[in-house]
Amino acid sequence: MSLDVKDKTQVRLVFMGAAGVGKTALIHRFLQDTFEPKHRRTVEELHSKDYEIAGVKVTVEIMDTSGSYPFPAMRKLSIQNGDAFALVYAIDDAESVEVVKSLRDEILEIKQDKFTPVVVIGNKADLDECRRVPAADVLSTVELDWSNTFLEASAKENKNVVEVFRELLQQANLPSRLSPALRRRRETFPKDTSFRPPMNKTNSCTVS
Rank of each mutant, 00 (worst) to 15 (best):
F71C: 10
K57A: 09
L127H: 01
S96F: 04
P198W: 03
V21W: 05
Y89G: 07
D92R: 03
I79D: 02
L3V: 06
S147G: 02
P70W: 03
G82S: 04
N173Y: 14
S176M: 12
E44V: 07
V11W: 04
K76W: 01
A73D: 10
I62D: 05
K201S: 09
T193C: 14
K191I: 14
V120K: 02
V5K: 07
M16I: 13
W146N: 09
V162Y: 02
S176T: 12
N160P: 09
T149I: 14
E187R: 13
M1T: 14
N200V: 01
D4V: 06
L168F: 11
E152W: 02
R75K: 08
L103H: 04
A54W: 00
V58F: 06
V162A: 13
K114W: 04
D7M: 11
E143L: 01
R183A: 15
T188W: 03
A19Y: 02
F35P: 03
D137R: 06
T188L: 12
G20T: 01
K101M: 07
R104K: 15
V164A: 14
T9M: 15
M74R: 00
I79R: 05
L151D: 00
V14Y: 03
D145M: 03
L169M: 13
Q32M: 14
S66A: 15
E52W: 05
D7W: 08
L139C: 10
T65V: 11
S194M: 13
A155Q: 03
A90S: 15
F195P: 04
E157C: 14
K124F: 07
R166P: 04
I62G: 08
K159P: 01
A136E: 11
L174K: 06
Q170K: 14
W146T: 09
E36R: 13
L13G: 02
L182I: 13
V161C: 08
A135S: 15
D64C: 11
R131C: 11
A136I: 08
P72L: 13
R104N: 10
A136T: 04
G55Q: 00
F165P: 02
V100Q: 04
E109L: 11
L3P: 01
D137C: 03
F115C: 02
D92G: 05
E163F: 04
K76T: 11
Q10I: 01
F71D: 06
L46Q: 09
I107T: 03
P198H: 10
F189C: 01
L151Y: 00
M1F: 14
V60A: 07
E157F: 11
T42A: 14
L77V: 05
L182A: 06
R185G: 00
A86Y: 03
L174S: 05
A181E: 10
K114Y: 05
N160R: 09
E163Q: 14
D126S: 10
V60T: 06
A125S: 15
S194G: 15
K49E: 07
A18M: 09
A54N: 11
L174T: 12
T9K: 15
D50V: 15
R185Y: 00
V21I: 08
A54I: 00
A18V: 07
A136G: 08
